[in-house]
Amino acid sequence: MVLHTVNCPPSHPALGQCLRLLAPGDALLLLGDGVYAALAGSRAAAELAASGAALHVLDVDARAAGVLERLADGVSVCDDEGFVALTERYPRQQAWY
């Protein structure tokens, strides 16, 4: 079980690589420009939902981007403490940037 973090926008190849390797049981945290992948109705959000991984966005970044207003179903919002809790729960982390 791996925690993946993505901070690049959906068009970036790193998101594609992350999607390829995301496994059910993994968690994904979107932060920075990565939060756009959680836009409801977007292709990236559909692909993420199909991965079976637990999906999270960082609250401040999602709010700043206006993504919080139109967050895809099934994505949970986490604050800094939630981020830390994720890193405790998943000792293996892969950052996609």
Binding site: M1, V2, R20, L21, A23, P91, R92, Q93, Q94, A95
Partner: peptide, 17 residues
Amino acid sequence: DDAAIRALLAGHDHILG
């Protein structure tokens, strides 16, 4: 392949990216 890569990611104690 991708399945083997997923197993590598999950199968080590630490990942350095």
